[in-house]
Design a protein around this nucleic acid. Structure first.
Lengths: 253, 253
DNA sequence: CAGTGGTCTAGACCACGCT
DNA sequence: GCGTGGTCTAGACCACTGT
């Protein structure tokens, strides 16, 4: 079956705008023409222009700001989270005044942390391998680099392991060396970390916190930190803006 | 007195439809009311209804089919690709007539494979650590499970390593035991696999092959297979439908 | 054929950011 | 106040899927 497939006009306009951005005719960070200007240029109704912009916005090429205009999106620096990000660098622990350089948290990062004690939900209990209702420390963390939100993490620790220790003092955020180093200060030696990677659309809270444009997906990682067979930490959904993040892993034979 | 933030009608309607689907009033796989029916029910113009449906479609809750209607999306089985999927099970190699059970390819899967010889592009040459122009075997693979496309992979091998071997005979697809087992039959012992995980919007070709609804993101993995320090295979973009796939990794301290 | 979603028009008024 | 995008209307015709 031959496909004559006449291209709708809004798609042709989307193609043209995409071409201009790729060719540099509209530089990254610059405003694209306003909807009324495009209406005049292409001789179509405004709704058609808006559909075309929807297409390239859902591709992440532009972002719109109410009252200001639509911008060609500047190339965002991609943050690569490497397989060795949980390795403890000795000086991170030796010099506690220093910020962490692992665990996805860099020197330039700002963090906003909240601690709370909660009983384990059935899902958390299953991830931990403990009975529901067991008391946990919940740590909610929003990490920003250069004023751009990067990562929203909710992680959990067994309360009887961490309660009362200075290591988990909320005022000592961000944690030097990351959570693996903090656990080591408590005598807990992490032997294995499991990560489960998914992609999905953000919840409203996640979209707000990470300042995501509508339609942008996130990378959601569920992490379990193990000391031998014991689960000592669970990060139940670390959310990353998908277009600012890549994850690197190594698998050994 | 600040203006109370009134929710737009299309969002309220999207919320209502979301609620009905979550509550089971619209069962998974069933048609939601037609646009004209919703127009009558909510007393709004059809464009407003279409905007509401756009919202829940971009969330992956419904899929629309031209001429048929809009369906609440049935729960798709999620395929978990585990960290041990590259381990060779002895019988996979011992019984070559048997289908692979590793490498993300299961017994029920159908594959559509195409082989081709090409010179290395600069990007591929960099990933391989060889000079550009070096001849490679390109293997394009579309994997389907139960008639649902799952995975689109383009991978590359050094041609002088595989040329003329029966192992890489296109008629022997799918490969028993996956690519690691096939390399072992050539005497190449894989010691390490690196994977780089990203999420992005699909190209048109990818969206067609994986039968993705508009706006659905993909998981894109770049893989490098190593034998000691030598790169013996590169999968430059394995594309998975993001909502049908999750990836599991383990990191050892 | 009737019914569905896909595309498109030509308006209108509102909310927001700037000057 | 002015220009921007956000929401909404009330139509129209087309393309696809079914009977």
């Amino acid at each position: 079956m031959p496909t004559p497939h006449r291209q709708p006009r809004y798609r042709a306009i989307a193609d043209e705008l995409r071409r201009r951005i790729a060719a540099g005719a509209i530089p990254a960070g610059a405003l694209i023409p306003s909807e009324s200007a495009l209406t005049a240029e292409f001789h179509v109704a405004r709704g058609t222009i808006r559909e075309a912009i929807n297409v390239i916005r859902s591709e992440g090429l532009v972002v719109t700001e109410h009252g200001r205009g639509t911008y060609a999106r500047p190339d965002l620096p991609v943050r690569r989270l490497a397989y060795d990000r949980y390795q403890i660098k000795t000086h991170d622990v030796a010099l506690p005044g220093q910020l962490a350089t692992t665990s996805g948290v860099d020197k330039d990062d700002q963090v906003d942390a909240q601690h709370q004690e909660i009983p384990a939900t059935p899902k958390l209990a299953q991830l931990f391998g403990v009975e529901p209702g067991r008391m946990l420390l919940e740590r909610r963390l929003l990490t920003s680099a250069h004023a751009v939100p990067q990562q929203l993490t909710t992680s959990y620790y067994l309360l009887d392991m961490v309660a009362g220790t200075t290591v988990f003092d909320p005022s000592r955020e961000p944690w030097p060396g990351g959570h693996v180093a903090q656990l080591r200060l408590l005598g807990v030696i992490v032997t294995k970390i499991q990560e489960l990677v998914r992609t999905r659309m953000p919840t409203g809270e996640e979209a707000d916190a990470l300042r995501l444009p509508p339609g942008a997906p996130i990378i959601a990682v569920t992490r379990r930190t193990m000391a031998d067979v014991r689960v000592v930490e669970v990060a139940c959904e670390m959310a990353f803006s998908a277009d600012r993040t890549e994850l690197e892993y190594e698998i050994y034979a």
